[in-house]
């Protein structure tokens, strides 16, 4: 089979005017996912030099919902974007060293951008469905590659900025930056491709991430989570191997504030003034539920002036001497999972 050249691709849909628009939406998704991902990463650190705001309690819910929505919506957009720019893969490399070096650097940065974007979106997608077919740590890798992907994206934008500006300020049917032979009419118009890509992104994001949203959760047909079984569980006490420890009479909730610490038993907790509160429990994997419960912790919080906050998965201020069976203990990599 003959290897195609850039000129083998003749559709007028493969145009900078389409690439720039889909790329803009994709860029927005990446920035939203980076910002909200950094919040989650920070929230899960043991030490937070500047504490995250505790109010409004739905802040984490919103940011982490946005994280998975942006990431999932980016999948159809990235696939369409890569289809549009696919001929670039067959661009010839300039012969002269003076031209070849910048070209090689630019195309190297595109290779980094494409591969890290594909891996970021895939690993994030699989994490939501708790499928970990790899041996590396998800959290560490997803965090590191985020900087590589967004860094490569900035370089890409810098290189293409004049074309992006022309394309976005011009009409979608402009051919100023098209290859001369990319003139063949496709079955849909450029506007049609943009509408389809946007619809596909929104539909996919809804189907995959809206499972725990009241009202519409039932029709989010591909969500790994639903509202059927109460609060979603990431890892059961049984699979974490903490049933005996957590239900033991030796269990102590240990509160540490600066140099002082206090250990509180279950009996101590039950003896405190009981209050019921409803707080959003949200996870970076995108699901969220409002949960109410007997909250003796509030009594502790008021005496210790520790911040009250909505629950986040895998992060906690208190350090129990044995981990309680939290409904949302986050799994970072398969190697850290107790049998």
């Amino acid at each position: 089979m003959r290897i195609p050249s850039e000129d083998s691709f003749t559709s007028r849909l493969r145009s900078a005017a389409v690439a720039a628009r889909v790329g803009l939406w994709l860029g927005v998704c990446f920035v939203v996912a980076l910002a909200t991902g950094l919040i989650s990463h920070y929230a899960q650190n043991d030490q937070q030099p500047v504490p995250l705001p505790t109010s409004p309690s739905w802040l984490y819910q919103v940011t982490q919902g946005l994280h998975v929505v942006a990431g999932t919506a980016a999948i159809p957009l990235l696939l369409v974007k890569l289809w549009v720019v696919f001929p670039k893969l067959f661009q010839p490399v300039p012969r002269r060293a003076r031209e070849a070096l910048p070209t090689a650097l630019e195309r190297g940065s595109i290779a980094v951008l494409v591969s890290t974007s594909l891996v970021q979106l895939t690993t994030g997608l699989l994490n939501v469905a708790q499928w970990y077919p790899w041996g590396f740590g998800f959290r560490a890798t997803h965090y590191a590659l985020a900087f590589v992907a967004v860094g490569a994206l900035l370089v890409h934008i810098a290189v293409k900025l004049p074309i992006i500006r022309d394309a976005l300020t011009g009409n979608v049917d402009d051919t100023a930056h098209d290859r001369p032979n990319a003139r063949r009419q496709g079955p849909v118009s450029r506007r049609g491709v943009l509408i389809l890509a946007g619809t596909s992104a929104l539909a996919t994001a809804f189907l995959y991430t809206a499972g725990t949203v009241p009202g519409v959760g039932r029709i989010a047909a591909l969500s790994p989570r639903s509202r059927k079984h109460g609060i979603p569980i990431n890892r059961t006490a049984h699979s974490a191997g903490v049933v005996a420890e957590a239900s033991s009479s030796a269990y102590r909730l240990e509160l540490v504030h600066g140099a002082t610490s206090r250990a509180i038993s279950r009996q101590d907790l039950v003896a405190m003034e009981q209050r019921t509160s409803t707080l959003p429990i949200a996870c970076v994997e995108g699901w969220t539920r409002r949960a109410s419960g007997e909250a003796y912790a509030c009594a502790i919080c008021s005496t210790w002036s520790a911040p009250r906050r909505g629950g986040t998965c895998g992060s906690g201020r208190s350090r129990p001497s044995a981990p309680p069976p939290t409904p949302c203990s986050r799994r970072t990599s398969p190697t850290t999972t107790a049998p």
């Binding site: 999948i75 696939l79 469905a129 708790q130 499928w131 596909s200 996919t204 189907l207 790994p224 059961t236």
Partner: peptide
């Protein structure tokens, strides 16, 4: 097309755990 690719992890139920009914429950 993209939705089918996104659906692979849930269609295959690869992350399902026998003791966790709150995951992949559709």
């Amino acid at each position: 097309g993209p939705t089918v690719l996104v659906a692979i992890p849930v269609l295959g139920r690869f992350g399902a755990k026998p003791d966790n009914p709150t995951l992949l429950d559709r």
